[in-house]
């Protein structure tokens, strides 16, 4: 009995620490759900609305210039955009940098990023479950439904597999 009570007390203690900062309630942008719509500005100051990309296979990649694993994935996204762009792929980068926007612009120019890079906002991150880690990538089919979400850096082949699944999705007329 003493062990049970001690166990319950300990469990309460650990659970308290566990839930601090953790997601509560239903997770947004889960697999099979509609990708939350948003409007964000790109590097040129133009607004980009996610739902305007309906009909395309979208890779929505949350990243930051201070995140080495994010930067490691970017050359792969550039290459995949080149290879599959004609088949309807649209990679969209969402920078979660808090600092100077010029750092993002400089990085995008230096690395010849060939897809839109948007300046992220906490409100959009919240729509996507809080974005506790970077990179976090959502693969969205042509109907705006989340096919997969990947937390952390993925391998090149794993990314291409998700891209192909998104491209193969059929748009509802």
């Amino acid at each position: 009995m003493v062990v049970v009570v001690a166990g319950l007390l300990l469990m309460g203690k650990f659970r308290g620490k566990f839930t601090a900062g953790a997601r509560t309630g239903p997770v947004a942008a889960d697999k099979g759900s509609a990708a939350p719509d948003f409007v964000l500005s790109d590097l040129q100051g133009h607004t980009v609305k996610l739902s305007d990309l309906r009909g395309k296979a979208v890779v929505l990649n949350f990243w930051a210039t201070w995140c080495p694993p994010c930067k490691a994935e970017i050359p792969w996204f550039i290459e995949l955009q080149k290879r599959y762009g004609a088949q309807g792929l649209q990679v969209v980068g969402v920078s979660m940098d808090d600092g100077d926007q010029k750092d993002v612009e400089k990085f995008a120019a230096e690395n010849s990023i060939n897809y839109p890079v948007l300046f992220g906002k906490d409100s959009v991150a919240d729509q996507y479950g809080g974005i506790s880690y970077l990179p976090t990538t959502f693969y969205i089919d042509r109907n705006g439904v989340v096919l997969n979400r990947v937390f952390g850096q993925a391998g090149r082949d794993e990314i291409e597999q998700d891209v192909k699944r998104a491209i193969d999705s059929k748009a509802h007329s």
Partner: peptide, 11 residues
């Protein structure tokens, strides 16, 4: 600002 081998966490 912390990271592990595959991901980074906000500052």
């Amino acid at each position: 600002q912390a990271c592990d081998n595959r991901q980074c966490f906000p500052p």
